[in-house]
Nucleic acid binder design. Structure first.
Lengths: 196, 196
DNA sequence: TGTAGCATGTAAGCCGTTACATGATTGA
DNA sequence: TCAATCATGTAACGGCTTACATGCTACA
């Protein structure tokens, strides 16, 4: 189906180590490593509640194409499941090769330094070009968005604390909350400074 | 959400407002808005010392292609300058149309919520798959990288404080330092928690 | 003499998004 | 019955990176 030429690379080993996948593929594989068998749609929900906060939440179309790629590489197994009506849903589960590949990626490759696409900071850099009021408005909007985000993430953290399966996801969620708190402090300090 | 702008596509006017440029183009235009006439190479240096910390530092090839695009849209002027030897260098300067376009972008479009590509957090999420030692090592490496980054950024901030031209860049740089400090605190807290 | 920095580009290709298509089920 | 949600994809394309190409200058 979608196996085009990408899977016909010069080394056709599927059981691991050799082919480098995009990080998002490892991220999705990682979500599957928590054990549940998920459909593309469910994986999207899951990534919206996790990856969104410190990676990017892939579009549905990308979820499907990455799942296709993982299948091509033999890192996940798929299964047709009957839905509520007459429809069938494809569900995916990580297999041993996938776990090995994921572990291999984690231990052999280095984590890159995080990349921030911070358009609020970018716009603040250029604040000499606009009137002070609009800069203030932008920062206040950002402050409100931070409040929303924090609420969303706090709710997620609430649902996984005390569940040993999600010990590390809980660390990451707490990390996100700390980050949002730090952003809020900075934004407020800048707002104060601007009014002088 | 913001797709109302999409309908204003097909007008090929070059003097502004109508054509949406990629954010990186506005970022580079923004760097030129500080007044200096720069070559592509110098713009790369400049972006490495500014955009790098809260946006991405574009590759040389992208700098050149964005400059070409800005030129096509009439937002910058270019000039051939004799270099030290027999070579000539093309220098670019923002013009009035460019300033207007940049101001228009700043006031009419909304800042998106920042996107993080945090592979350290992503890997921490999956820490259940690897041995505790390698997680600890990763976090320590990140802590060291943060120290380096902070040093780099502190040096840059040092060079622009008390220069009124760079008032807003100084805010942004301080923002970056706050962010690195918050990251350090979090990383250390997690390292402590892991040893329990 | 050779390497690092200055300086400018082209070509190929991947990652990821938006737009387009399709259709079933559930609840207001 | 109409909208929202579930569910799965294809096509087109934009942004950005890497690799490739070229050649000069300064300096150790």
């Amino acid at each position: 189906m979608n196996s085009t030429v990408a899977s016909m690379r010069q080394d056709p080993d599927s059981t691991g180590s050799g082919t480098r996948l995009p990080t998002t593929a490892y991220a999705l594989l990682g979500l599957l490593s928590f054990g549940r068998e998920l459909s593309g749609y469910e994986l999207k929900q899951f990534s919206d509640s996790t990856l969104r906060f410190y990676w990017s939440s892939p579009a549905m179309s990308q979820i499907y194409s990455e799942l296709g790629r993982l299948l091509d590489h033999g890192l996940v197994d798929s299964r047709e499941v009957d839905g509520p009506g007459s429809r069938t849903t494809t569900k995916y589960r990580i297999n041993d090769a996938g776990l090995a590949e994921l572990r291999g990626w984690l231990v052999t490759s280095e984590a890159e330094f995080p990349v921030l696409k911070h358009s609020v900071a970018l716009r603040l850099l250029l604040a000499h070009l606009v009137d002070p009021g609009s800069v203030e408005a932008m920062l206040k909007t950002y402050d409100e968005q931070l409040t929303e985000r924090r609420r969303d993430l706090a709710a997620i953290l609430d649902g996984i604390t005390d569940d040993e399966t999600f010990r590390f996801p809980a660390y990451v969620a707490q990390w996100g909350l700390d980050y949002y708190a730090a952003e809020k402090r900075t934004v407020r300090r800048i707002l104060r400074d601007l009014n002088e």
